[in-house]
Computed example of a mutant assay.
Amino acid sequence: MEKVKLGIIGFGTIGFQHAKALTSGKVPNCTLVAIADIDEKKRESARNLYGESLAVFSTAEELIASTLVEAIHICVPHYLHPVYGIAGLKNGKHIMVEKPAGVYTKQVQELNEEARKHPELVFGVMFNQRTNPLYQKVRELVTSGELGEITRTNWIITNWFRAQSYYDQSPWRATWKGEGGGVLLNQNPHNLDLFQWICGMPSRIRSQVYYGKHRDIEVEDDVYAIFEYPNGATGCYITTIADAPGTNRLEICGDRGKIVVENDSIVFHRLRESCSAFNARFIGGIGQPECWKIEIPTKGTYTSHCGILQNFCDAILHGTSLMVPGEEGIKGLALSNAIHLSSWQEGNWVSLPIDADLYYDLLQHKIRNSKK
């Protein structure tokens, strides 16, 4: 079987997980040929695990330049995702970037622009939740028109509990300089990607964000955001790392009912008659359309990271369409940047696309004034 020769940049927690999956044969169309890490202890760990079958480099640049490697999986801190992505593309390598695609949209725009110069190369982002049949089915219900025009979205995603010890493990984590954000950049990229993938991009956002409210960190750990969509629909997004037990409940209301995603199940509250049609004909004062509660089944298996890598390699080998095209990585990031930007401007509305230069300048101010 033909296989893609892959190199991993960054042999930390996520890099190790991917290496373990690849060397265990969980992605049959991919073979791990190289790892790069600036930490000698991590390089030594890689050598001990994989021996001479694996090339080990001390810098990303060495791996990117290596003729051993056809494709690169970038598993380093967020700020470096676009840096090594651009370098890899310029060196003729296919690119898979861990989430998020970057910290601020300005740098991800540069990554996307470089990718457009190399249409022969495959560029993907590791949004593994798109392989979940649950969210695939919800997207199908929305995009097919079964729900009707969206009128309201709500996602309470507060089951990301993290103790202080989590932040104390790594000096770069939960800092403006090291990570560029908190719960929005660390835990929520998957949710924000799914939110826009299913419901589309809002036209503007306003927010109330709390920084270091629950933990000794300088970045956000409690977020409330309001979305407004081009058709006038509204949305609410709530997240934190402090709730135990937390909640994961997505509601999407439309002209023909409401979809509720919770506890790994989909319930469609399906209206027999659309709200708009009922409103036009009903003269009884108080009343509402007849509603059927339907449990929606799903098919398929959640393949997570391995599924995304399998698809990435299929795209390289056979031209298969990507589940997560790399240029889409900017969309969820734009949502988190807009939420930050609104909070930095006294909760005022922020239109999308955001002012990328303004966001960058304000972020640099945060970095310069960091106490961490």
Rank of each mutant, 00 (worst) to 15 (best):
S203K: 14
I238A: 08
Y229G: 13
H73R: 08
Q288I: 15
E52C: 10
I38R: 15
L250C: 05
A101T: 14
G51F: 01
C75E: 07
M323C: 15
S53N: 07
L184G: 04
C30Q: 01
K293P: 01
P325N: 08
C30F: 05
P77Q: 04
Q208C: 03
D216F: 12
T320E: 10
R368F: 04
D264V: 13
I339Y: 10
V76P: 04
M323V: 07
R116W: 05
E140G: 07
K90Q: 14
E251G: 05
A315T: 08
D264G: 14
G145R: 12
D357R: 09
V83P: 08
I9V: 04
T153P: 10
T298W: 11
H78I: 03
D357P: 14
F282P: 01
K371A: 05
L111V: 01
P119E: 07
F227E: 15
R173T: 12
L358R: 15
P171L: 11
L194W: 04
V267L: 05
Y50N: 07
V27I: 00
V142M: 11
L341W: 06
K137W: 01
G124V: 06
C199E: 03
L271I: 11
A315E: 06
K90D: 08
L341P: 09
I150P: 06
I367G: 11
F161I: 08
E328L: 06
Q129L: 07
I296E: 08
V103A: 05
I367K: 11
H318R: 14
L63V: 01
W155T: 09
G7A: 04
V76N: 00
T239E: 10
W344A: 09
R130Y: 04
V83Q: 10
F195R: 15
D216L: 02
G15L: 00
C253A: 15
I157M: 12
R272E: 13
C30E: 01
S53T: 10
I8Q: 05
I157P: 13
R281S: 11
T247I: 15
L362M: 05
F195W: 06
N128R: 13
G319D: 11
P77I: 00
N29C: 00
G51P: 02
G246I: 07
L194R: 06
I157N: 11
P230H: 08
F268T: 11
S343N: 12
G232W: 02
R204S: 02
G182K: 14
F282L: 05
L147Y: 05
I339K: 14
L358A: 14
I283L: 08
R249G: 03
L22R: 00
S165H: 01
K331L: 01
N48F: 10
P100T: 06
S170H: 12
C236R: 04
M323D: 09
I283V: 06
P171Q: 12
N248F: 10
N29G: 00
I241E: 04
Q196M: 03
K3L: 01
M201V: 02
L111H: 05
L363K: 12
L185R: 07
V209Y: 09
V125S: 07
L141E: 10
C275T: 14
L271K: 07
R173V: 01
G145S: 03
A334N: 15
H81M: 00
T131R: 04
S276T: 15
